[in-house]
C-alpha cells in the first residue's frame, strides 16, 4: 500500500489542475489579500493577516481534499483503471483507504505553504500551542470534504463530477466564509453558514489564532458531517465497485 499511496501522490503532483487550483490559488490569494487588508484588525482585535491565513489555508485544504478524490476517482472507475486494480491481488478496501490517506497528504502542501507565507511575508507569529493545535485540526478536519469528494466520484461520471465538485468546493468555500467574511452575510445566510462543515472547519482555526479554544459547537458540527458523509461515502463506494 505505501507504493500505491506513492503513485497516487505522484500523479496529483504532476497534475496541473491540482497545482494551480489547490496550491497556487490559495497562496496567491493570501499574498494579495493580506497585502490589502493584512494590517486591519477585526472586532476582537485579531489581525487580518491571521484571519486570512486560516481562511486561505482552509480553502486550499478543502479544495485539495475534494479535487484529489472526486474527479480522479470518477475517471478511474470509467476508464477501466479500477477494473485493472480489481484483477490484481490488491484488496478492494485498500483502494478506498489509499484514497483517503492520499487526500489527507495532498492537503498538506497548501496548508503549510499558506502558513509559511503568512509567517514570512506578514510576520505572523503564534504561540507554540496555537500552531500545535491549528495545523493538526486543519489537517484532520478535511475528512468530511474528502468523503464528499468520494461520494461525487462514486456516483457521477467523470464529465459531471468535474463541475459538481467545482460547485460544491466553491459553494462550501463561499458559504463557509472562506472567501468572504461571514460578517458581511445577511442574517439568514449566516445562520445557514453556521451549520456547514466548511464554516465549522474554518471557525475552529479562527478561534485558535484568536487565542481561544474552538467552540464545542464547531467540533460537534464537523464530527456529525464527517460521520454522515463518511457513511454515505462507504455506501456510494460500495455501489460503485460492486461486482454484478
Amino acid at each position: 500500500m505505501p507504493n500505491y499511496i506513492k503513485i497516487e501522490i505522484l500523479r496529483m503532483l504532476r497534475n496541473k489542475r491540482y497545482i494551480i487550483f489547490v496550491v497556487g490559488f490559495p497562496l496567491a490569494f493570501y499574498l494579495l489579500y493580506s497585502s490589502l487588508w493584512g494590517a486591519e484588525a477585526d472586532s476582537n482585535g485579531v489581525k487580518g493577516s491571521l484571519i486570512l491565513m486560516v481562511s486561505m489555508a482552509a480553502y486550499g485544504a478543502l479544495a485539495a481534499s475534494m479535487m484529489s478524490t472526486s474527479v480522479p476517482w470518477a475517471q478511474e472507475r470509467q476508464s477501466g483503471w479500477l477494473r485493472q486494480l480489481q484483477i490484481t491481488p490488491l484488496p478492494s478496501w485498500s483502494i478506498v483507504v489509499t484514497k483517503l490517506i492520499t487526500s489527507l497528504l495532498l492537503v498538506l502542501p497548501s496548508l503549510v505553504l499558506v502558513c509559511l507565507a503568512a509567517v514570512l511575508t506578514q510576520g505572523v507569529s503564534l504561540r507554540a500551542w496555537q500552531w500545535a493545535a491549528l495545523l493538526p485540526i486543519m489537517w484532520i478536519g478535511t475528512v468530511p470534504f474528502a468523503a464528499l469528494g468520494l461520494i461525487i466520484g462514486s456516483l457521477l461520471s467523470a464529465d459531471s463530477a468535474q463541475p459538481v465538485a467545482m460547485i460544491c468546493m466553491l459553494g462550501l468555500s463561499f458559504i463557509g466564509g472562506l472567501l468572504i467574511p461571514v460578517e458581511v452575510m445577511s442574517a439568514t445566510v449566516k445562520s445557514v453558514a453556521q451549520v456547514t462543515p466548511s464554516f465549522s472547519y474554518a471557525d475552529m482555526g479562527w478561534h485558535l489564532v484568536a487565542g481561544t479554544a474552538p467552540p464545542l459547537r464547531d467540533v460537534a458540527t464537523i464530527l456529525v458531517w464527517a460521520a454522515v458523509l463518511g457513511t454515505v461515502a462507504v455506501f456510494a463506494y460500495r455501489r460503485a465497485t460492486v461486482r454484478a
Binding site: L10, R11, S79, G80, W81, I87
Partner: peptide
Amino acid sequence: MTQSGELIPEL
C-alpha cells in the same frame, strides 16, 4: 488485459 482500460495519464 480486459477490453477497455486506460492508464493513469500522469504516470
